[in-house]
Simulated assay, not measured.
Amino acid sequence: MMKNHFRILSFAFVIITIFSCDTDDNPEPNPIQDDFPDLQLFLDRFAEEASFRGFDLNLSGLDAVYVDEINRNDAPYCGYGYIIHPQTGRRTVEISRAPNCNWAALSDIQRENLFFHEMGHAFLNLPHDNALKCDGRPLSLMTDEFNIFEIYRAGEEELRTYYLDELFDRVAASEQCIDFGQDFDQDPAFFKNELEDGFWNFSNDNGNYQVSRGVHEDSGVPYLGISSEGDGQNTGYIYKEILVPNIPEGASVTLRTKINAENLQGPGVAIALRIYETEIGNTGANLVETATLTTENDPIGGTLEDHVLELTLSNFTRRTIFMIPFAVMMPGTEGKAYFDDFEIVVEDAS
């Protein structure tokens, strides 16, 4: 199995440690008497909604606090959710008192929208999710592309119930008409290695592997490249984190690539796919690895020409928070391998 993969877990955890929501679309205010109500009101309500859905929560390890303002990279925010607060180390929701947020004049339901969104970050370990329903509405309360104060409004009880159902269990969205952004029957490629995508990571075992990304001049095919002189003590790999993949519940998901190499000596190369979800516990959600698919136990070497490697997850779940595909070179391998047409394809079970 791939060594040093805990580095990947750490990297993934950092990505979903801090979330924020800006305030460019502040709604029209609905004045209320109590300017800054105790945030415990919304904590109690969140726990009550969780209880309705079968979760018994202990929120004593989470801080909900007002702050004078929230600014990150010179941008103002009205709410911020931390899984680990940088000063206290605790789960924290911050609500801004800044005039641009107009919190004092918001209605109770508008405040709830923002607060529950931030609890999604801080307590449920959820990243933003910008998938859409077929009617153009956000699929999730965790969107950051809509007015976060009004994902659902006063009197929209059925809509509110749906968004809170989905907040605690992403599979609830499967009952909706979802805009997947493509017809998987006509275009099954959910993900491809494209050269302009710079968000790739690698482990080179202290320089014992050389990794590269490029396009073959003769064919124009994009590749992931890994080479070594055989000195690697651990695996060398390239990987990509794919957050909140918008894939149908129950679909078949296949990682596929074509390997090209000349006289690859030693154990050889492989591919892997790891799947992660969040699991809601009494004191907060935790990141869990729910599936690991790999060909590392049967690597390939020698001279290879468009040798197809693939792994298939037969029953995708929308509880998936992110998945990570890997191109891998095994320890002790000498030579260079190209992983061409590195892609993830989807076959919709419906």
Rank of each mutant, 00 (worst) to 15 (best):
P325K: 08
K336T: 03
N208V: 02
G232I: 03
E145F: 00
Q87M: 03
D25W: 06
L139N: 05
L141T: 06
Y80I: 15
N26V: 12
F13H: 15
E49W: 05
A122P: 10
D35I: 01
Y152R: 01
F322H: 15
V244D: 11
A50Y: 11
N315Y: 12
E158P: 02
N125M: 13
S20K: 13
L124P: 01
I271E: 11
N282W: 00
R7A: 11
L311M: 03
T92Q: 07
I344S: 12
I242R: 04
I259K: 12
P299I: 03
A105I: 00
I16W: 03
M323G: 02
T257V: 00
K192M: 12
T254C: 11
F168M: 02
I95S: 02
S10P: 02
P248Q: 09
E194S: 12
T17H: 06
G266S: 09
K192H: 08
I259V: 14
P267T: 02
E229R: 10
L9A: 12
L293D: 11
S314I: 00
W103Q: 04
G236F: 09
N71F: 13
Y77T: 04
P29R: 09
G136K: 03
E343K: 15
D68C: 05
D179L: 13
Y239H: 14
L114T: 05
H5E: 04
L43S: 14
G281P: 07
L124T: 02
F168V: 04
A349S: 15
R170N: 13
G332N: 04
M329I: 06
N73F: 05
N193L: 10
P245M: 06
G220H: 09
D38A: 06
F115N: 00
E229H: 04
N147I: 05
T23H: 13
Q210H: 01
I259Q: 10
R137W: 05
Q87K: 14
V346L: 10
A327H: 02
P222W: 09
K3M: 10
E347T: 15
E158A: 05
Y163N: 15
L132T: 06
Y239K: 07
H121T: 15
P37D: 01
L57C: 07
L313A: 08
V215Y: 11
I16T: 09
C101A: 12
G332E: 04
N206P: 02
N206R: 08
D25Q: 09
Y276R: 06
M2K: 04
N286G: 15
T292S: 04
I242D: 09
V65A: 06
E94N: 04
V211W: 01
S20N: 14
M330K: 03
R53Q: 14
R97N: 11
A75S: 13
G302I: 09
H117S: 11
K133W: 05
D135V: 13
G332V: 03
E217D: 08
V269Y: 05
E196Y: 14
R170G: 06
C134W: 00
S227P: 05
P99T: 14
S107I: 03
F202S: 15
G81D: 07
Q182F: 01
A349R: 14
